[in-house]
Write a protein that binds this DNA or RNA. Structure first.
Lengths: 241, 241
DNA sequence: ACTTTTCTATTTGTCAGACATTTAAAAGTC
DNA sequence: GACTTTTAAATGTCTGACAAATAGAAAAGT
């Protein structure tokens, strides 16, 4: 691991990259302890604050964790699924909110990916997944529900659908697609009528999953996708006035 | 934005989280300048190195960028698609390599998502996308190609397929699924015969895309998925001996 | 001999102050 | 007016120090 003091990049960025590469390439394995900050400062010929800035960069990506005390130090962290979920969601949310991505584009991507999970979910979903979906459908019918709470429940419903595929990698990927879109979905005002429509589509999806009827799930998801986009278009049109 | 000096969390982590929240909630908008490090140190009642560690955390997530000089400082960064790609790939790669995810699970997720893009790509792919795919197929037929170079070309081929859908959000999501699997794919030894088989499937995909024949693309992808899994199973079996 | 307490060394977390470097704008010069 | 020099502000880096946490060794007590 070498560092170039004359490079245009910051020293802390270079050091972070060197360690990151070592982790990705498997030269540093999970739970392995890195040298102490003082030792690294020596090795890289920089000061301790510079090493610390590099370590904080890695900590922000959940690549390392640190522990104080006698046997403490920085350790290569096993990137857990929950950590990866969280990062995926933050990144996706910001990407959508900062880049003038049209609702249609985001919606198309989301439903395309979700429909990819549907056949697997129809095949493998457990009674638990179905129960979660039914419970969320019930919640969506509560009268006093705010738009935000309705969206939250919507996310939980779709998450259960995706989790039904019993493939953690799929669930991880979809977390970004489904939850990252929430701020965009929150912009939609759900009238009583549109809520009823969505609830009936959700019910159709749950029914089809119960029958393990993959084509029916797919058709209904397609319909839901189209309906969501039409709702969004209405909102845009109203806002234009 | 408030900080609790008695919290168990590091001060720099708290400060980073406070700023991150402000960005996600839209209280800080793109290209807005944050106060100088000295000012923030005052505001949060911490030292400048602590503020700097917080800023480095945010920089690691591409949430801010810094500029030196008179009018310099830290600015809220527009998270670009390339930046998001890079993060997505790193996270996915590490997630797969650190969590004993079976090849089948990863492969299933990857092809499920890729097949979701196929119909859109059949509809919208340009001549450019096709040309890229043909070029990669040609490269895959070179005799002296290493397994790694073959995998690289494979990734480029599939990336062109996904990009054909002309939906940047899809491309972003698929980047993790396709490129994150590369270390796993690199474990497979491609014999001359298996390469021929893969090339012929790639050719069939390109042909079907040229005809805009979505069902044929889907069928061939399904076949390719099955073939890849059978190759992996062979490798595992050989390694077991 | 065993348990409990105290001490100690190590390591990260934080602070203060200083200097180097970069950069844009203001001031000066022709 | 165009060019050069100066200046001020900001980040980047270094040094040295102390605080706090923590595990293990040493000491004390039973």
């Amino acid at each position: 691991m070498k560092i170039d003091p004359n490079s245009s990049a910051d020293l802390s960025a270079q050091i972070a990259q060197a360690i990151r590469d070592a982790i990705v390439d498997g030269k540093l394995i999970v739970d392995e302890r890195l040298p102490s900050e003082a030792e690294m400062a020596d090795q890289f010929n920089v000061s301790r604050p510079t090493v610390r800035e590099a370590l904080k960069r890695l900590a922000a990506q959940s690549l390392i964790r640190t522990q104080r005390g006698a046997t403490g130090g920085a350790f290569v962290n096993r990137l857990s699924f929950p950590d990866a979920y969280a990062q995926q969601i933050t990144t996706s949310t910001l990407l959508l909110s900062m880049n003038a991505v049209s609702f249609d584009t985001a919606c198309e991507a989301r439903y395309a990916l979700e429909r990819a999970c549907a056949p697997l979910s129809a095949q493998r979903r457990t009674a638990d997944h179905l129960a979660t979906m039914r419970a969320e459908i019930h919640r969506q019918q509560q009268p006093g529900l705010t738009d935000e709470a309705f969206c939250d429940s919507d996310v939980a419903f779709h998450r259960a659908l995706v989790d039904g595929a019993q493939n953690p990698v799929l669930s991880y990927q979809l977390a970004g697609a489904v939850e990252g879109m929430q701020p965009l979905m929150n912009m939609i005002t759900f009238t009583a009528r549109s809520r009823n429509q969505i609830v009936s589509l959700h019910t159709a999806i749950a029914d089809a999953l119960e029958r393990r009827d993959a084509p029916a799930v797919d058709d209904t998801l397609k319909e839901l996708s189209g309906y969501t986009q039409s709702l969004a278009r209405d909102v845009m049109a109203k806002r234009a006035r």
